[in-house]
Amino acid sequence: MGLTSPQAYIAFSIILLAIGVYCLVSKRNMIKTVIGIEVTTIAVNTALLSLSWARVATISHITGAMVEPLAEALVIISIVIGGAIAALALSLVVNAYRHYKTLDLKKLKRLRW
């Protein structure tokens, strides 16, 4: 299991997922929340790519020699969607800053539960 094996990338994506979710849960700054979403998106994309690679590797026994076109197409679309979501989220952050003059999520909690 070296850097060229899919298992390493799966482990990497799990670590990235943990970092992203931690960032989403713990950070109070709105921009850091957006960064958390992006890190989580990247983690899931990496997971999708490396899982499809792992599947190819188990079938053909030639690690890294083949690609899975469907998974890669899905990842490319997911990256585009992630970009759109980041843009929309940042525009909401800008509008929130215009209303409150702060980016602190704790100070935004005017909504009742």
């Binding site: 989403l24 709105m30 929340t33 979403i37 979501i85 929309l88 989220a89 909401l92 952050v93 509008n95 929130a96 209303h99 409150y100 935004l108 005017r110 909504l111």
Partner: peptide, 12 residues
Amino acid sequence: WEPIEAGFKYLV
């Protein structure tokens, strides 16, 4: 303010 806050929560 309300749509911005609710929209951000929904988005996340």
